[in-house]
Write a protein that binds this DNA or RNA. Structure first.
Length: 561
RNA sequence: GCGGCUGUAGCUCAGUUGGAUAGAGCACUUGGCUACGAACCAAGGGGUCGGGGGUUCGAAUCCUCCCAGCCGCACCA
């Protein structure tokens, strides 16, 4: 509909350019936006205000000229000039309500588009190191990342979900030492406990499993414990597998799965780290200083150069990161989105600098990043501390078990990623009017319930197949509902384009609210069959869109609650 | 000190890329179930959009300078 109006406006512009009202080379960006206030109609354009200068006319006068030459269209029932020079468009009822047909015809596919044109997109998210269970911060990344993946799929992209993790390095050594210490019966309070050891209780469980010779299987590996307390390599391998399995269970409980698990160690094994370093040296972006090898990241906007190879000969963490991203590029992903905690934001400049230094024709500013800020968890109004090393923290699984998957996902995806999030456990748990998840789900369940009631009033038709005449829908609440339903596809499209999942939760809340208002004010199952059918048809459409939207959030759309 | 993010109603947060009178939810006050589900609805009060300056027809939104909070500033990841 916006496109239709834009076309009409373009045609009107052409007319005014021909008659000399506007310069012949005038090429404005025609913007048609949803009216914020329904008193202003359905759509509005600011064209007259943008074009008033070249036309040397007052905005409202120009608006009138535009309307005068605007071609007639059956979908537009009225236009008006308002405020400083807006042109408001009122869409005819027949045209507004037609969206119901579209929704019921396309079903689950309503709202999807091919704007991505099958482009391969990779989204890397969670990427937690296998040194502990997932916590709420990872949960936020999982909720946002998975929802973005679903949004991109819905808009015609071919999405690969990828999980990258460090399975070697210093942190993993610390992990192995911690497990070994626990296996020897030490606790974090004892002398001889590793300096940077992981203190959590789960390390003791892990040590127990290792000594017992258990076999653990994660999504990407399976390891049987050797049981030998002295064999640090065996401990390390087992510990990584054990924690990966834990994380897989957390993710499974959360309804998130990955297509690819990518190991940092593989980048060393296949020589790509060495090759990356070599290429940066050859391209002249490195130098030796103080016994270390430095990358001239300042040539790419960093505020100081960064060490690539430490004096001990090991590479710093961002070097394999650069190799990893080169690998992503070589796999053909022209769009890569990295969903990470904002505490890692300093890596962005380094990784992009490294990629530019490779001179591999990778565009500047590639890849994309979506960063999420910290999550603060409160219970009974007080903060619950999250400290992995200290061991006392709320894991993602705790949260899922306590508040449920749907509420956890909804809460973690419902806010802009770049603002801090307070996760109120009491609120998320409450099965009451305080909880926005249930508000949306309740609207869905209510519609299901109404449809089931049809048989009680002696109508034995299958409610799913009823298609009433929506010309009988004349209530204000019904117009409000279809207007909002019609906006769903553009909400999906813009949420995907802007990589902002929270627009969807916002939209669903509003749609559910409009339905609740309608439901409370008017009866769906009225006596007159034709009107009843029309309202059932509308209800089916609302239910469909609620279900589609919840689906993109990975939240269930229950028939009963 | 440097960089990133944030600052909007008592609280938690939106604000469609610069539009019309800044919106929801919670909380508070009042009203609505012998109703197709009250996990709901209706009505009401509540704001110098952190502060100052600037850009223009028009700013919560863009620029600039302050203030406050969080995060990062390792040869950890």
């Amino acid at each position: 509909m916006k496109d239709t109006i834009a076309h009409l406006l373009q045609s009107a512009l052409n007319q005014l350019m021909e008659d000399g009202t506007l310069p012949a080379d005038f090429r404005p960006d025609i913007k048609v936006e949803n009216a914020r206030d329904k008193a202003h109609g359905d759509f509005a354009t600011n064209l007259a205000m943008v074009a008033c200068k070249p036309a040397k006319m007052k905005p409202r006068d120009l608006a009138q000229r535009l309307i005068d030459v605007l071609p007639a269209d059956g979908a537009i029932s009225a236009t008006e000039i308002a405020g400083p020079g807006f042109i408001n468009f009122f869409v005819s009822d027949a045209s507004s309500f037609a969206v119901i047909d579209d929704i019921l015809h396309r079903g689950e596919a309503f709202g999807t588009s091919d704007q991505g044109q099958g482009q391969a997109v990779q989204i890397e998210f969670v990427s937690a190191n296998p040194t502990g269970p997932l916590h709420v911060g990872h949960g936020r990344g999982a909720a946002i990342g998975d929802c973005l993946a679903r949004l991109l799929e819905a808009t015609g992209h071919k999405v690969t979900r990828e999980f990258y993790y460090n399975d070697a390095g210093v942190q993993i050594d610390n992990l192995a030492l911690s497990v070994q210490a626990r296996a020897r019966g030490l606790t974090p309070e004892d002398a001889g406990w590793p300096a940077d050891g992981y203190r959590g209780e789960y390390i003791a469980d892990l040590a127990q499993a290792y000594k017992a010779g258990e076999t653990v299987s994660a999504d990407d590996r399976s390891v049987t414990a050797k049981g030998d307390i002295e064999d640090l390599t065996a401990i390390r391998n087992f510990a990584v597998a054990w924690l990966r399995r834990e994380q897989d269970e957390d993710l499974k409980a959360f309804g998130v799965s990955f297509d690819v698990y990518f190991l940092e160690s593989s980048l060393y094994q296949d020589g790509s780290v060495a090759a990356t370093v070599q290429r940066l040296i050859e391209n002249g972006f490195t130098y030796e200083k103080d016994g270390a090898l430095w990358l001239k990241t300042t040539e790419f906007g960093d505020d100081k150069d960064r060490v690539m190879r430490k004096t001990d000969g090991n590479y710093t963490y961002f070097v394999p990161d650069v190799a990893y991203h080169l690998n992503k590029w070589q796999r053909g992903f022209t769009t890569v989105i990295n969903e990470q905690g904002a505490d890692h934001h300093s890596t962005i400049t380094r990784v992009r600098a490294g990629l530019q230094g490779l001179k591999a024709d990778i565009p500047q500013g590639w890849p994309d990043y979506v960063l999420h800020q910290m999550v603060l968890v409160t219970r009974s109004g007080v903060e619950v501390k999250l400290s992995k090393r200290a061991g006392s923290y709320v894991t993602l699984r705790d949260l899922i078990e306590e508040v449920g998957r749907d509420a956890t996902r909804f809460f973690l995806a419902a806010r802009r990623s770049d603002s801090q999030l307070t996760f109120d456990i009491d609120l998320a748990r409450s099965q009451s009017n305080e909880n926005p998840v249930y508000y949306v789900q309740y609207a869905h369940a209510r519609i299901c319930s109404v449809l089931n009631k049809l048989v009680d009033i002696g109508d034995n038709r299958d409610p799913e197949s009823i298609r009433g005449d929506y010309q009988l829908l004349t209530l204000e609440e019904e117009r409000d509902l279809v207007a909002r339903l019609a906006q769903y596809p553009e909400v999906i499209a813009s949420a995907a384009r802007q990589r902002e999942a929270h627009h969807l939760t916002q939209y669903l809340r509003e749609l559910a609210g409009l339905f609740h208002t309608y439901y409370n004010a008017h009866k769906v199952l009225v006596d007159e069959t034709e009107l009843r059918d029309a309202r059932i048809t509308l209800s089916l459409a609302v239910r469909q869109v609620l279900a589609n939207g919840l689906g993109l959030l990975g939240v269930s759309a229950p028939q009963r609650m």
